[in-house]
Design a protein around this nucleic acid. Structure first.
Length: 470
RNA sequence: GACCCUAUCGUCCAGUGGCCUAGGACACUCCCCUUUCACGGGAGUAACACGGGUUCGAAUCCCGUUAGGGUCACCA
């Protein structure tokens, strides 16, 4: 369909040049967020796709901060972006805190470069100052055509563009009267200076692209390849805005999501490996990634599926890594678990049961205190049943004789006891579970008892009997 | 308003003229496993926006309509 076919954008030869001083074969992509105080999931995915393409091609991923609005202290806002990207595992090769040969990587520090480029336009007669003192770029108003790696061929007759009121489009402002720069100009200048070969960005820029191409032409530089990726929508199809729950990567960090899971989910929004796999190693994604295979349709963000992947990642975690991830949440909940060694067997018991890290404390509290609460409803359904406490006593007696305190022995002992007393195992299992944990649900009873240990189990059986005997 | 992009189950993807009585995943329902809860296994509900063409044949190509999104800024 001709997408791969390079079309000639320039009628006359002229002084077209492309990256005069470098080997031109290496892919250079960039993510150019403005520091707004959050890293939006849409932006995060844009960064991710750029990163994937760089990794796929062995290219370079540049991070550039578009802070032309030289507004107040953006330092924290920048940090939010850097933190979010690092958390996601999307690292940059050039940019803030990474350095590189194309810096500075903050637009607020690139004034001289912009002056220089403005000079070029001025010499060529492309700009003028309007009555208000702003610098404007004389729009060529020629047809513009380009082939987008995602959206395909785009043709726009720039002589026909109008304002909302139907007037012809005004010449583009590139510098405000106060000397500050406008996005379109600095964006193009930076992409030229940073030798960006592929611009992968949100679809909201698709309609801006002809404008940018006009600028490239004015500079006599061949534009990079463009790939406009569709936007991310809310679950109800509305546009995801900054305020929407889950719109910021910060939310996922705070809620204890597994970064690899979120990254995996983001990969799957608008892209797929073309087979039925959902959980994919990032290396595999890098291997398969192709911008031309990105969907053209805006995708709705489905937190349910993200949650599912999160649970998949947790279930697949090594126990040590799971402990690393869970411990902050356990500490935050005020659970004093003593040593890591004491914690690991407990975590092993519940790892497959939980879907989110913040759930962990709720599952393990009773392992580390004897002051665990009893769920009222569960108590009613089990311990208050006629004979329940008697059976608890019977199993306690039976267990007091057990010498090798392991799950298998405990299971056979319980079943044996049930049979000898003419009861169903369940009539012992449920009271026993509630007695040692206060809860109706939890890990496998026998494994739980094993980890708890004989002394504590027998004490809890006894304590529960006394407590509810009254 | 003009211009641009998009249109397959509720959602995310597969599908590039015949393999489609449209496939997978999430969610939902049911069953099995488990005498807890999950996991897992099995089954089920559910879609080609609409209307015209082109073709022996269309989810796939073309046109129109409708719907959604985007851009037209001294915001990025």
């Amino acid at each position: 369909m001709g997408i791969r076919k390079r079309i000639s954008l320039f009628q006359s030869g002229g002084a077209l040049r492309r990256f005069p001083d470098s080997m031109s074969s290496q892919v250079r992509v960039r993510f150019a967020p403005s520091p707004t105080g959050m890293l939006h999931v849409g932006g995060a995915r844009t960064a991710l796709f750029n990163w994937l393409y760089a990794r796929h091609t062995g290219g370079v991923f540049v991070l550039r901060i578009e802070d032309t609005d030289r507004a107040r202290h953006v330092e924290e806002a920048v940090q939010v972006i850097l933190d979010g990207m690092r958390w996601l595992g999307v690292g940059w090769d050039e940019g803030p805190e990474a350095g590189g040969n194309h810096g500075p990587y903050f637009q607020s520090q690139r004034g001289e470069i912009y002056e220089r480029y403005l000079g070029k336009l001025r010499e060529a007669g492309h700009v003028y100052q309007d009555e208000a003192g702003a610098t404007r770029f004389r729009l060529p108003r020629q047809p513009v055509e380009f082939v987008d790696m995602v959206c395909g061929r785009n043709y726009v007759d720039r002589s026909k563009t109008t304002t909302p009121t139907g007037e012809p489009e005004a010449d583009m402002t590139i510098r405000r009267p106060d000397g500050s720069w406008i996005f379109h100009f600095v964006n193009v200048v930076d992409d030229i200076e940073m030798e960006i070969t592929h611009v992968i960005r949100g679809e909201d820029h698709l309609s801006n692209t002809p404008k940018h191409i006009e600028l490239y032409r004015a500079f006599g530089v061949e534009p990079p390849r463009f790939a406009h990726i569709p936007l991310i929508l809310n679950r109800d199809g509305s546009k995801m805005s900054k305020r929407d729950q889950g719109a910021g990567i910060g939310n996922y960090i705070e809620q204890g999501y597994v970064p690899e899971a979120v990254r995996n989910y983001l990969c799957l929004l608008g892209w797929s490996p073309k087979d039925d796999r959902e959980k994919l190693d990032i290396e595999e994604v890098i291997r398969l990634f192709d911008p031309e295979k990105i969907n053209r349709k805006a995708a709705q963000f489905d937190i349910e599926k993200c949650n599912w992947l999160n649970a998949q990642y947790i279930a697949a975690m090594e126990i040590e890594k799971f402990a690393d991830a869970a411990i902050p949440w356990i500490e935050k909940a005020g659970i004093r678990f003593g040593s890591r060694d004491a914690l690991l067997p407990v975590l092993a018991l519940i790892k497959e049961k939980i879907k989110q890290l913040p759930e962990v404390p709720g599952w393990i509290g009773y392992f580390f205190t004897d002051e665990y609460p009893y769920e009222l409803e569960t108590v009613e359904k089990t311990l208050r049943k006629p004979g329940a406490l008697d059976r608890l006593k019977q199993i306690a007696d039976a267990y007091s004789m057990v010498e090798s305190w392991d799950a298998a022995a405990l299971e056979s002992k319980l079943k044996e006891t049930a049979v000898s007393l003419g009861c169903k195992p369940a009539e012992f299992i449920h009271p026993a579970r509630v007695a040692v944990s206060g809860r109706g649900i939890g890990p496998s009873l026998y494994h739980m008892l094993e980890v708890l240990g004989k002394t504590r189990v027998l004490a809890r059986f006894q304590g529960t009997i006394e407590r509810f005997r009254a």
